[in-house]
């Protein structure tokens, strides 16, 4: 069932996790871990296995949700299908007064 190329912890999360290396312009399917919800996303850039993919357009300053919980906030706008990592999100708890770069 290597049909799904990313997995999502909880319905409503803003990110999924690539379970395969994703290529730009690839249309990939994903699935929520528990439940039936499926997703289809146009990949905008290379996203290696284990890295996060944005499931929606995210504004600068917006909270990033994974596991149904806050994992950080965006330090720049992120498009649906882009990679989400330390270059565009940062911790809310630690590094709060820094630029997060």
């Amino acid at each position: 069932m290597a049909f799904y190329k990313f997995l999502v912890h909880k319905e409503g999360d803003s990110v999924g996790i690539a379970t395969d290396d994703l290529q730009p312009h690839e249309k990939v399917k994903g699935k929520v871990l528990e439940g039936e919800e499926e997703y289809e996303i146009n990949v905008l850039m290379e996203i290696p296995l284990g890295y996060k993919i944005s499931l929606k357009d995210i504004e600068e300053g917006e909270e990033i949700i994974e596991y149904g919980e806050k994992i950080g906030k965006a330090i720049k706008p992120i498009k649906k299908g882009e990679m989400v990592h330390v270059h565009n999100i940062k911790s809310i708890i630690w590094g709060g007064n820094k630029d997060g770069e």
Binding site: E66, Y67, I92, W94
Partner: peptide, 26 residues
């Protein structure tokens, strides 16, 4: 200080973990 820089560790970040919150929830 805060633990940004040591949490998540270099290895965690290389593995796709971006923040301490994400690491803790995992």
């Amino acid at each position: 200080v805060d633990l940004l820089g040591s949490q998540p560790t270099e290895g965690n970040i290389a593995g796709g973990l971006s923040t301490i919150e994400e690491k803790a929830l995992g």
